[in-house]
Amino acid sequence: MQLNQFADTAALNTDFAKRLVAILQQAINERGAAYLVVSGGKTPQALFTALSQVDLAWDKVTVLLADDRWLDDTQSDSNERLVKAVLLQNNAKAAKFISLYADTASAFDGVAQVLQRIAALPTFDAVILGMGEDGHTASLFPCSEQIQAGLAADAPAVLAVKPTTAPYERMSLSLPRLLDSRHLFLHLVGANKLAVLNKAMAEQDVPAMPIRAFLHHPVAQVAVMYTEHQG
């Protein structure tokens, strides 16, 4: 784990956007395509706006979410709605987007459809994770019955999750699918998130705080992009 601390969110987002653009450009140069996994919520919105304006061959970039609530993109709590409204604008409108949603009543009924879209994707170029106060990341919730399945070394690329401490069923990339990336980032804002990070680093119980699976991984390196201050 590498902790990168910034004076404020503006400084963090400027640096983060430069890093991501360099990664995506290298992927396009070397392989003709780039794959970026993002997370929803309030934290990355300014970063998304900055990225959307970057001069890049966005038509060669594929974007998908680390997880999403089982809602269609007309619903305000949909991460897909957020990504389309903020990231996939301006220059980034040309990027391809892969949805984690299917038109089924339950996320559990939609797994097969979503898995078809994800299963054949190559190694991601960058994955941007978030972290909840309980140490969950993506929709790998410690409170869910599905946590062991999502953390398993042989887990499929995606799984449906029903958290008991958060609303909505979810569709989430699994631990092994998220780890299959050239670069892993954890994007955190606020002193409370640093406290959670320190707790996660201090102990090894992964199901209790799933973010530990990334932070303590023997091979994967996580770059933590952190600032205490908004603005």
Rank of each mutant, 00 (worst) to 15 (best):
W70T: 05
A191R: 13
S181V: 08
H229F: 11
A213C: 03
I28F: 08
W58F: 10
E169W: 01
H136E: 03
L129H: 06
W58I: 06
L179A: 00
V21G: 12
Q2E: 07
S99L: 08
Q204D: 14
M201D: 11
V63Q: 00
K60E: 02
D67K: 04
K162H: 12
L64Y: 15
F48N: 00
L188P: 06
W58Q: 04
E203R: 10
P218G: 04
L51F: 06
A50Y: 12
A202F: 14
A220L: 10
K18C: 14
L140H: 11
G135F: 02
D103W: 06
L194Q: 14
V83Y: 02
T9E: 06
G231F: 09
A105P: 15
F108L: 10
K162P: 15
L215Y: 05
Q230A: 13
V38A: 02
D8F: 01
A34Y: 13
I23G: 09
V61N: 08
L12T: 01
V161E: 00
T123W: 07
F141R: 04
T43L: 09
I147Q: 04
A50D: 15
D68Y: 08
G135C: 09
Q89G: 04
A208I: 08
L184D: 07
V54Y: 12
V111K: 09
D68K: 05
H136C: 01
S174R: 02
S174F: 06
F214P: 00
A220Q: 02
N90P: 11
A112I: 12
H216K: 01
L47Q: 01
L194I: 10
P44W: 00
N192W: 12
K93G: 09
S39M: 05
T164M: 10
V219F: 10
A166H: 07
Y101T: 08
L20Y: 03
I211A: 09
F6Q: 00
L121T: 06
L173I: 11
P163I: 09
A102L: 15
A112Q: 15
S139R: 06
A10S: 10
P210S: 01
N29E: 14
F185T: 10
M209H: 03
Q116Y: 13
P156A: 10
L197S: 05
P122H: 09
A120R: 04
P163A: 08
W58K: 03
L175E: 11
D205L: 04
M131V: 01
G32V: 02
V219L: 14
Y226P: 03
L47C: 05
S174T: 15
V158F: 08
Q146C: 14
F48Q: 01
A153T: 12
E30M: 10
Q53H: 13
Q116T: 15
P156C: 06
G132E: 07
P218Q: 02
H229Y: 15
H229S: 13
M201I: 09
D154A: 02
Q45I: 06
A200T: 01
A160Q: 03
L173M: 12
Y101C: 09
N192E: 14
T14P: 07
A126W: 03
T14N: 15
L64S: 14
A119C: 11
D55W: 12
P207R: 01
D109V: 09
Y226N: 00
A11T: 12
L179Q: 04
L3G: 00
